[in-house]
Structures are given as structure tokens and as C-alpha cells.
């Protein structure tokens, strides 16, 4: 198997996160209304990182949450039974600006499920999407508002996002197709 290549080094990842936080701040002047909601598992760490950066920019606490999408997936029969995660949202989402966060954007089906799941918790004023890596191959008309890195990939490749708190380092790798 070939060595994975580094897509974002630690420094590059930090710059990408900082830029994303500034873009979110720029787009949302009503900062008090913003809630960051991560999609488990990959989106959770991204959510806490972005929240920390936004709190420095806005100088007030930024509420965060998580939304489980496994019960709303449209591909339950084609996949192994997904692990069901817990959903924690800070109150009613009605009238809020929800920034959904996930580590990698691929087919768009996870985001579609997250939009449906969010719908059961009120009617947000708007929903924006933040992803660390957009690797293409969309199967639905879904586009991210904030992107850390656009990365054209082949379907056989795998993107691995690593965060210091969970995997011991801040970096993004691309695993190439296994040679047959």
C-alpha cells in the first residue's frame, strides 16, 4: 500500500480553520443568533475548534450542539447499520442561524440527512454548511458555504482528518487507492 500524502499540514490546517472562522463571522453580523452544530463523529471536533476561534473574534460564547443523522439516512439498506449517536442541541433552533459542520463533504447524503433531522427541532432562520475538506463527487444539489480545502479526489481514495485532541495531531491525509 502507498504512503498517504499530506493534504493539510498542522500549520495549513490552522490557517484554514482561522480563515473559515473569519468567513463565518463576516457572513453573520447577528453573531448572537449563531449556533454551531456538528455531525458526529467527524464534525464534532471541527465544531468545537470553530466555536473557540469565533468566541475570540466575537468576544462572546458561541453555543454548540451535535445532530445524529443515522435515523434519517436514505441508504440504510445499502450500508452496515450505522452507529446511532446522540443529539444535543442548545434549545429551540427556530429563528437561529445554524452553521452545520462536518469534516469531509462527499456525496452530500449525510448533509441531506442532517437538514431533515434539524427540521424536527424548529425552523432555523438559515442554515449554512462548513466543511474542512470538500472532496467532490456530489450526488445531491448541496454546496458548502465555508470550505477549508477543495480537494478533487477519485472515489477510491479516502480522506482522513486528524485532530490533536482525538488522534494526536492536526493534519489531513489522503489515502490512495490500494494497488491491486
Amino acid at each position: 500500500m502507498r504512503q498517504p500524502s499530506v493534504i493539510l499540514s498542522t500549520n495549513a490546517l490552522h490557517r484554514a480553520l482561522a480563515r473559515m472562522a473569519h468567513e463565518i463571522a463576516e457572513r453573520n453580523e447577528d453573531s448572537q443568533q449563531v449556533v454551531l452544530v456538528g455531525i458526529p463523529r467527524g464534525g464534532l471536533r471541527l465544531t468545537t475548534r470553530l466555536a473557540k476561534l469565533l468566541e475570540e473574534i466575537w468576544e462572546h460564547p458561541v453555543p454548540t450542539g451535535s445532530i445524529d443523522v443515522s435515523m434519517h439516512r436514505d441508504d440504510l439498506e445499502h450500508q452496515p447499520t450505522p452507529e446511532v449517536h446522540s443529539t444535543h442541541l442548545p434549545g429551540d433552533m427556530s429563528g437561529r442561524t445554524v452553521v452545520l459542520a462536518d469534516d469531509v463533504l462527499f456525496s452530500g447524503r449525510t448533509v441531506r440527512a442532517a437538514l431533515d433531522a434539524l427540521h424536527d427541532f424548529g425552523r432555523p432562520r438559515r442554515i449554512q454548511l462548513a466543511v474542512l475538506v470538500d472532496r467532490g463527487h456530489r450526488e445531491l444539489p448541496i454546496k458548502a458555504d465555508f470550505v477549508g480545502k477543495n480537494l478533487p479526489t477519485s472515489r477510491q481514495e479516502r480522506v482522513e482528518v486528524r485532530f490533536k485532541e482525538d488522534q494526536g495531531e492536526d493534519a489531513v491525509y489522503l489515502h490512495r487507492q490500494q494497488s491491486s
Binding site: 467527524g42 441508504d75 439498506e77 450500508q79 452496515p80 447499520t81 450505522p82 449525510t110
Partner: peptide, 12 residues
Amino acid sequence: VNGGKGPQEVAH
């Protein structure tokens, strides 16, 4: 019990 039968990774 309704869950999937195929051994693949959950796509994002």
C-alpha cells in the same frame, strides 16, 4: 434488524 447488509464504509 432492518439495518444494512453490505460491508462498505458509510459515505459522507
